[in-house]
Simulated assay, not measured.
Amino acid sequence: MIEVGFISNPDEERRLRDPVHQSGLSQAIFSGLRDHFQRYPPPASLLAWQRDNQRQPSGNEYRIQSGDTLSAIAVRHGVPVNQLKQANDLNGDVIRVGQVLQIPRS
């Protein structure tokens, strides 16, 4: 369930009845979901298989496995955690199993 407005608000209720607004909302929701699952496909899913078979590994990549942490990956590859975050555009410490990280050259 996705909340996109409040029918108790007259302006939002009017927009929610508008087919053009409804179409824009549905396109934005679909686009966001598609982008998320293309970037973070569930392990062993069709999307993960497609991702893995469409590009060649650069040799400077690491696929997150269960139990991994950013700090352990950084130590394993001899790079500072902040460089690892910067190379992968990470704002926090959250990583997902199956995610592929670019390992910067130390």
Score class of each variant (00 low, 15 high):
V100H: 07
D52T: 01
N82H: 12
N82M: 07
L47R: 09
I2R: 15
P104T: 01
I103V: 04
Q50M: 12
Q99F: 00
Y40I: 02
R96K: 12
Q56W: 04
V20C: 05
R55W: 03
I29Q: 14
V20N: 15
I7M: 06
I2Y: 15
I73C: 04
Y62T: 03
R55T: 05
N60G: 10
V20M: 14
H21C: 02
F30A: 14
G24C: 05
Q38C: 05
G67I: 04
H36E: 10
P41K: 02
R34V: 03
S71I: 08
S66A: 12
R34E: 13
L70H: 09
L70G: 09
S31H: 07
A74D: 10
L70R: 02
N60P: 05
Y40S: 04
P10D: 03
P10F: 00
E12Y: 13
N88R: 01
P41A: 03
S66T: 06
F6P: 14
N53K: 02
N88Y: 01
Q50K: 08
I103R: 07
A72D: 15
S106E: 09
G92E: 09
I29E: 14
H21F: 10
S31G: 12
I64H: 04
G98T: 01
L47E: 13
G24L: 08
V81K: 00
H36N: 12
N88W: 01
G59C: 07
R96N: 10
P57S: 02
G67M: 09
E12W: 05
L46P: 13
N91E: 10
E13W: 04
D11G: 04
V97M: 10
P41F: 00
L84N: 08
D89A: 11
G92A: 06
M1S: 11
P104L: 06
Y62M: 04
V81T: 02
Q38Y: 08
L84P: 09
I64A: 03
L101M: 07
R63N: 01
R14Q: 10
V100G: 13
Q99D: 05
Q22N: 03
E12H: 13
G67P: 14
S45P: 14
Q99C: 02
V100F: 06
I2G: 12
A48T: 00
L90Y: 06
D18Q: 07
G24T: 03
A87G: 02
L70E: 09
Q65C: 09
L101D: 05
